[in-house]
Design a protein around this nucleic acid. Structure first.
Lengths: 359, 359
DNA sequence: GGGTGAAATTTTATCGTTCAAATCGCTTGA
DNA sequence: TCAAGCGATTTGAACGATAAAATTTCACCC
């Protein structure tokens, strides 16, 4: 009558015991109906299920977590928004993760950290206090210390991306080589023969693989020699992209198309080109990477990562490795890694066929 | 020796009992050191704290949640990414929320839902199963059914935005009126006398308040009569913004500056203007709302919401209302609502002073 | 010195579930 | 007929913490 919450209806929480009483069985039988139905005779099971439905029972997460030593939570560090870049990939990824866990009643626990060390400390703490069963790591690359550290703590995890030695943990990644190669193919198909590339400084796995995609596709078409000097490396800002674009466009024999390692750099390249009076999509074709909202706005062709699928796959792999909750009695635990193919979204910036310079 | 995790170091989890033994006190005393230090004598407290530090003890979340009936989790529904709009506000907001809870050891639990009904079901379930202590609701507006539904369930919550009747729950909102008014002031200061507005159809609280800001600022400067017909309403896509912009620009006496209710619409307006040969920032000033990454890229002036602060304030208010964990022994529970002032980020799109048409 | 009351600490019970072992009921085969 | 065996169900204990009640310790005063 006199609840603490003013407008609260105050439904008394229904427990296993309540269900057991109503169904005329013991607590444990109700538990079995939920967690190991095969152990329960059909008639009993139906009776219990009826009681569960009638009372609207739902197991208490804390109690379950305490006893089963499994919180059904997946930890994820959300990074500070990097103001300079255009990434919205992140939003999509988060949603995919949260959605992927839903069916198995696993939820995402978000946390923040100030730096890599802080992140590891937070992970260790969350894991040891039973706050989460495992982690998803985003944007991993060569030399990342996190996988080793988490292995040491004993926390299960799955990563988006690859390090130089992907052993002992599962990963999913986008096929960056294929993504950029597709972009190059697309441009060559439209008649371009001089295709440039603006990438990151060597050393990042992601950047190197994207550059590799450019090189491989050119080689495939026998154009690598023509494009030898048509690449530039710089860091990921619009201004840097503009500078790199300027450099390429001011060559004596400039590229007629440029692929970039990110949309951010592509925007810079477009700026540089427009500053030189070129019309994007006619005088110069540009293809970016990530398919950000900005790309859409600017009509920039871009390689779109199948983030939703990555999220799904990652959670799937992670859950399969969690001890205790063998949702799918798979053979062992599925493959260690999965490589997913991105897709090119062609827009105006690479629209018009280019009058081949060799004809 | 024979752990299940191959590389796991397998640190045996430290419990309250371990600490108690090492410190030579009872379990409850250790608990008190953590939750009610004033009840423990200084000498004892120091001894216990030393033991805690030595053993690296950290309380188990599940056990604590079960006993204290408080999970220290805040629920948040992450919505599917709306491909058409440019919002990145969301990312910032999420980060702010996660960060705000950190100090009080509260974490964010992310979940998804297919529709409003599904969201409410998920909320009710999460709350009743003890998965979360309360919720943060995003993007609330007139006629939103969620507050009433949550009140009925008895779940504490705080919202970003306002409904028509904000009673019984706490809210934080951005002062939309002031935000747009600032934009208009800024334009008038630069010499503009005919300032248009592209907004949403009437009926949304947010949209109406932004329109109100436009009207109020004009009135303040005695310019409302001149700008009577300079507004348009449409839904939030770039194409629609372009159409609305075209409509205003094709008037016999068109505006020299246009404020829009979102960056998305501003981008549309810019397109329409450029399609008519106008140079943005010289022939036509444009100011958007949200300060999206795209705005930065395009040099679009925009009203920036203090999302980080909103997140902080919301979590603060929510935590203050949670029963059981009186972190701050405040008077009652702080104010019911807070209105935060956005700030204008001026860029090229509204840069040049306009030769006043009345001179 | 002993009574008093407040402060410090311990004891006991409990949160809601699942695990492990024990029990019950029924079929089967010698 | 009874032991063995197996599946279904129940019992008892435990997960790791906190609330509430009970107890001890201690300072203080007459």
């Amino acid at each position: 009558m006199n609840q603490d919450q003013p407008g609260a209806v105050g439904v008394a929480p229904v427990t296993l015991d309540d269900v057991a009483t109503h169904a005329g069985v013991s607590r444990q039988t109700v538990s079995n109906v939920l967690n190991a139905p095969h152990r329960v005779r059909e008639g009993t099971r139906e009776r219990v299920e009826a009681a569960i439905a009638r009372l609207g029972y739902q197991p208490n997460r804390a109690a379950r977590a305490l006893r089963a030593q499994a919180s059904r939570m997946i930890g994820y560090r959300i990074e500070p928004v990097h103001e300079e870049s255009l990434a919205s990939i992140h939003d999509r990824f988060l949603h995919a993760l949260a959605d992927a866990g839903r069916e198995a009643d696993h939820h995402l626990l978000l946390f923040t950290a100030d730096d890599p060390a802080g992140e590891l400390a937070a992970c260790a703490r969350l894991f040891r206090t039973g706050g989460v069963d495992g982690f998803v790591l985003y944007g991993i690359d060569h030399g990342d210390a996190r996988p080793a550290a988490l292995l040491k703590v004993g926390a299960p995890f799955a990563v988006f991306g690859r390090t130089d030695s992907d052993s002992g943990h599962c990963w999913a990644d986008v096929d960056n080589v294929a993504g950029v190669a597709d972009a190059v193919d697309h441009l060559i198909e439209r008649g371009h023969r001089r295709v440039g590339f603006v990438g990151w400084p060597e050393g990042s796995g992601v950047g190197d693989r994207r550059a590799e995609g450019w090189r491989a596709a050119l080689e495939e078409h026998g154009l690598l020699a023509d494009c030898q000097r048509l690449d530039a490396q710089t860091h990921d800002t619009i201004a840097a992209g503009a500078a790199a674009g300027a450099k390429l466009l001011d060559l004596s024999d400039p590229p007629t198309a440029i692929v970039t390692v990110t949309d951010t750099l592509a925007v810079g390249v477009m700026r540089a080109a427009q500053g030189r009076g070129r019309v994007i999509g006619e005088d110069l074709a540009v293809v970016g990477f990530d398919d950000t909202p900005t790309a859409r706005v600017l009509g920039l062709s871009s390689v779109r990562q199948p983030i939703e699928e990555v999220g799904r796959v990652i959670v799937e792999m992670l859950l399969a490795r969690l001890p205790g909750v063998p949702h799918q009695p798979q053979t062992a635990a599925g493959p260690e890694g999965r490589l997913l193919r991105p897709s090119l979204v062609a827009r105006g910036s690479s629209a018009a066929p280019y009058p081949s310079s060799s004809t």
